[in-house]
């Protein structure tokens, strides 16, 4: 059965609008602390989460807000949580990195790698008391260097637990690129721990949906875990206001703030010889350059744009749907902001 692209697109579109609204709230100072958006990974979120059923569990990382939206958590409660209202999903006590919804068996954690053991435990509970149910873990490729996640892959494999490990690989962990910090190959790593791998284009929602379908069937029928490796891009990089991205977007304002102390440091009297200093400088420049040049931030890599192309034949239906969803999200934000019962 092929996926219903219209339905998946509407989920992705809603996530995008929702997170754009969240970004605005953050920039307006209404959301405190850090804010990690998932804009760019909507195809992975929609493709996997739309297939979950009652009784399935979801273990999220620091980037899980959109996944909860797709899972069916009341969006007004989500926004109120981010705003820190007592009427929020978790009474304003959790915030976006610590979102919990018991009816959805959904947990989040800001500790990198923690979604691995979390999903494994949900998988154990499902296997024992609710066969046919599954648990999904979302994490980035950076988390694949965290011991507890690797241990979880092994544990889920030896116990044949119904767990889908979804690696959303955007190639970056904050300022570190995948290649510089991860040895070997992630697929080989998962296979080496006894977990079968499906590698997919995380920008292609049909691809994700199909792979997730396969993984879920395996899990539901007691055949154990799967590692879904999906490549994607994060349009806002690590979090809102990310320093490297600021330098790229507002070079005149941001560059001097970095360049002046840097020049100062490189010219300091004591230290290593100039050749070694230059090697250091090259590393800094390379990171900036990689951010500037990240080709994937272009439109062609946007999962929404790619899906929209396929639906454009019926432009009036598409636009009507987009308008409805935009209005719906506007309404969610407005109700979250004004309709707070005291």
């Amino acid at each position: 059965m092929p996926p219903d692209l219209w339905q998946l697109y509407s989920l992705m579109f809603k996530c995008r609008r929702f997170e754009e609204a969240v970004a605005k709230l953050w920039h307006d100072g209404l959301i405190s602390g850090e804010m990690h958006l998932g804009t760019g990974e909507e195809a992975i979120v929609a493709g996997v989460v739309s297939l979950l059923q009652e009784g399935d569990a979801l273990a999220l990382d620091h980037r899980g807000t959109a996944a909860l939206l797709v899972r069916g958590v009341d969006p007004v409660l989500l926004v109120r949580e981010l705003l820190g209202y007592p009427e929020g999903l978790c009474g304003g006590r959790g915030g976006h990195m610590h979102l919990f919804s018991q009816p959805h068996l959904a947990v989040s954690s800001g500790i990198v790698g923690a979604s691995g053991p979390a999903a494994t435990g949900f998988g154990l509970a499902a296997q024992y008391q609710n066969p046919g149910a599954v648990a999904v873990a979302f994490f980035g490729e950076g988390a694949m260097n965290q011991g507890m996640l690797l241990e979880s892959l092994n544990l889920a494999a030896v116990w044949q637990l119904p767990v889908i490990f979804v690696c959303k690989n955007d190639g970056w962990a904050i300022t570190s690129t995948d290649g510089s910090m991860t040895a070997g190959d992630l697929n080989e790593r998962a296979r080496g721990l006894g977990v079968p791998v499906i590698e997919i284009d995380g920008r292609d929602v049909s691809d994700v949906w199909q792979a997730a379908q396969t993984a879920l069937e395996r899990a539901r029928s007691g055949q154990g875990p799967t590692f879904l490796h999906a490549r994607c891009v994060h349009f806002e990089a690590h979090f809102l206001g990310f320093q490297l991205l600021r330098m790229v977007r507002h070079p005149l304002r941001e560059m001097p703030r970095v360049a002046v102390p840097l020049t100062h440091a490189i010219l300091k009297k004591d230290g290593e010889p100039f050749r070694i200093r230059l090697a250091g400088l090259r590393k800094v420049l390379a990171a900036v350059w990689r951010t500037v040049r990240d080709p994937r931030r272009g439109l062609a890599h946007d999962p929404l744009w790619r899906t929209r192309r396929l639906l454009r034949a019926d432009l009036s239906r598409l636009q009507a749907m987009e308008n409805d969803l935009t209005r719906e999200v506007d309404h969610i934000i407005a109700s979250a902001l004004v309709g707070v019962p005291s």
Partner: peptide
């Protein structure tokens, strides 16, 4: 390397 970039360009 980025958080302590001023040390990086001095000490390599």
């Amino acid at each position: 390397p980025l958080l302590r970039r001023e040390l990086l360009v001095r000490f390599g």
